[in-house]
Design a binder for these strands. Structure first.
Lengths: 198, 198
DNA sequence: TTGATTTCTTGTCATAAGGCAAGTCATAAC
DNA sequence: GTTATGACTTGCCTTATGACAAGAAATCAA
């Protein structure tokens, strides 16, 4: 049978410690966000750590000219938090926004820290999540240096087609490091090449 | 008086626990690297965590076409390690290379983990270093999206002029996301504009 | 010293992507 | 319905950067 999402998420990391698993999942409480909701606003301290069960989110920040730049997309199954603001208790440069209705589980900084202190395996898991996020970010930004915009578009498209049905073109564009105008043209060529035109 | 580098590095984080400070610094042993030495080779597991006391290092990886891309420069005072490989015990995608003779202090994964388990303050410090590295990386790569190559060059130049006297142009170029040809031209224009021509 | 190798510069040309503005289309507000 | 607003497309032109190749300068080896 399928336990709830929290349980399915953490169980593989604690196969032999059901009481610890229970202690952890009990602290992640369900929460929902309507489409367009701001989950975290830049300038505030990120105080919640989320497991995204369904729906899509994006992170964005403002560049020096005041333009929004989407820095991340979050898909179902992802962990959502801003590491620096969350752990250093500092104002966030980034905002999080729901791009569809979402369901998630959340835990506060205080609760998470308490769990880290009391459950070494959970501490290790938390660090693993952080370093995996970092590695994924490095890998993604490497493409900004050595792949063309069309290649970056194709990679994102293959990785998450559903995202393209819910995210705005301008958000995808700034995530890929190009303008919405360019993305519109790239998309046209891409669909033409791949005979995906409706 | 000035204690050694390890002590100066860690003392501000443990002002009230000299015995813990001593336990930590005792596990960081001095090491030197000659210019051009490969400190970590891609494919191997990163097993050492370094505090760089003097000299400069770079991290690099290979892109899909087999070109070297410099992903980071490390200056005196920096912490040097590859988080994913180090903590996940996985082969590294990146290599580290000394670009000058260097002196550093190193601690192994086993020793660091032991210290993390036994000294909660050190654990917090370790996490702080990791999230600061991540935040710095995010900030730097954001410039790849919204700043021109010349602006990225100027920022790096201001941030670390000494680096420009020791790092090769092609390494700086791939770090900035441009070719060495373009960097050569950008540098010429930059020096002209700023009346820095010798 | 000499030659070999690497590093850096410069020229010519091609191209990816941006800036700007107009136009279409869909959606929400009234 | 009509209008207003935002989302996306397209055209025209500019520009930053890349590709390639030749030459200059620096470094290293013998």
């Amino acid at each position: 049978m399928s336990a709830d999402f929290r349980h399915r998420f953490f169980a593989p990391f604690l196969p032999d410690a059901p009481e610890k698993l229970q202690a952890i999942t009990a602290h992640f409480e369900p929460v929902t966000f309507p489409r367009n909701a701001l989950i975290l606003e830049a300038g505030n301290v990120s105080n919640m750590y989320y497991l995204l069960e369904s729906g899509y989110l994006r992170a964005f920040t403002m560049d020096v000219e005041g333009n929004e730049v989407t820095t991340a997309f979050y898909c179902p199954g992802n962990v959502v938090f801003e590491p620096y603001s969350f752990f250093m208790r500092a104002p966030s440069d980034e905002s999080f926004q729901a791009i569809t209705d979402c369901t998630a589980y959340q835990v506060s900084f205080e609760q998470l820290n308490m769990l880290f202190h009391s459950i070494p395996e959970f501490r290790e898991l938390g660090r693993g999540i952080l370093v995996k996020e970092f590695a994924a970010y490095k890998k993604r930004t490497l493409a900004l240096i050595n792949r063309s915009a069309e290649e970056r578009y194709a990679a994102l498209f293959e990785n998450s087609r559903e995202l393209f049905q819910v995210a705005q073109l301008k958000h995808i564009a700034s995530y890929l490091g190009i303008t919405d105008t360019s993305l519109s043209r790239i998309r046209r060529e891409f669909l033409k090449k791949n005979d995906l035109i409706k």
